[in-house]
């Protein structure tokens, strides 16, 4: 906790979950999730299939309602109608009407959205290029993604929710769509929450991370801070078990290969003794937490829900 105290306004947090849970039948898809996402962040939502990523996006996009707890966007509960205009959601299959032309699709966007920005939407489509007269059903995967993003950005959302935006695109389209997404988010100051399995993309495109496993939050916060909190230590294996200088820290996972001992640790102060300590990559930290369900979750100060409004315990 601590660092900078948030000012009174709710706009500092694009998203805030408190004890959020969702149950489908007997199975909890999401359970007891509390975290914050600062406005302006580009956040990667990662985790195994079935970990709760799509459920979280559906809750934020109001496609489904929480079983427990609450979720607010820019300080307004997601159940209030006013969040609709501030948020855009793009499902993985990018649903569009196949018989509409590109132009008709954009006109639909204009008629459905009060804050529609025609210039932005048309710029995104034309830089494709996606011919205005073509029917959606005849477009390539990359063109369809571009049109779907044009609809999303034309809405001028403050928060953009994307479910696997680059999945199933060829490498060139992936590169173009990712570049488009980053550039538009930069120009409009949009907060982005995007699920992805491509960790290399998450590492360059995102500044924040939200990792879920088994319906619970495992890691949340600024990627720089998350990485800096950890070290990958290597040294000679001289005693049985985890060496005492290493056991002082939170050991996420460790292994021995012959006489070599390697561990991913969450630092508690400096690493002492004859150890080679390097900053791990995003992939190493993430895989460590996904493989070790016993390690307590880590939320950086920015991502923790503090209780300035209610007495309820969040973590």
């Amino acid at each position: 906790m601590g660092g900078t105290a948030p000012p009174g306004g709710g706009d500092r947090w694009a998203m805030e979950a408190r004890g959020l849970g969702k149950r489908y039948g007997r199975k909890w898809a999401l359970r007891d999730c509390s975290f914050r996402l600062p406005a302006g962040a580009i956040c990667g939502l990662v985790g195994s299939n079935g970990a709760g990523k799509s459920t979280l996006l559906s809750l934020a996009a109001r496609l489904t309602r929480p079983t427990t707890g609450g979720l607010s966007l820019f300080g307004t509960a997601v159940t209030e109608d006013e969040v609709l205009a501030r948020c855009a959601y793009l499902a993985q299959d990018k649903p569009l009407f196949p018989r509409f032309t590109v132009e008709e699709t954009l006109r639909m966007g204009a008629e459905l959205n009060p804050r529609w920005d025609r210039a932005v939407a048309e710029r995104i489509v034309r830089s494709g290029p996606v011919p205005m007269g073509d029917r959606v059903g005849t477009l390539s995967g990359g063109q369809r993604s571009r049109l779907a993003l044009a609809l999303a950005f034309g809405k001028r959302p403050e928060l953009l929710l994307l479910d696997e935006p680059m999945a199933e695109l060829d490498p060139l389209s992936q590169h173009e769509i990712a570049g488009l997404l980053m550039a538009e988010a930069a120009e409009q100051g949009t907060t982005v929450l995007m699920s992805s399995h491509q960790l290399a993309d998450v590492a360059t495109m995102c500044d924040h991370l939200l990792a879920v496993a088994d319906g619970r939050v495992r890691l949340a916060g600024a990627i720089d801070e998350l990485l800096d909190a950890h070290r990958l230590v290597t040294g000679a294996y001289l005693v049985d078990g985890v060496p005492p200088e290493i056991a002082r820290h939170t050991v996420v996972e460790s292994r021995t290969t012959g006489r070599q001992f390697t561990a991913l640790i969450r630092r508690q102060g400096p690493v002492e003794g004859d150890w080679r300590a390097t900053e791990p990559s995003l992939e190493e930290v993430l895989l460590g937490y996904l493989r070790s369900p016993g390690t307590p979750p880590l939320l950086t100060a920015d991502a923790q829900v503090t209780d300035e409004h209610e007495g309820e315990v969040a973590a």
């Binding site: 570049g179 988010a185 930069a186 360059t204 495109m205």
Partner: peptide, 10 residues
């Protein structure tokens, strides 16, 4: 960002 898909904040 457009050319390298790098996060603008970076």
């Amino acid at each position: 960002a457009r050319n390298t898909k790098l996060n603008p904040n970076t």
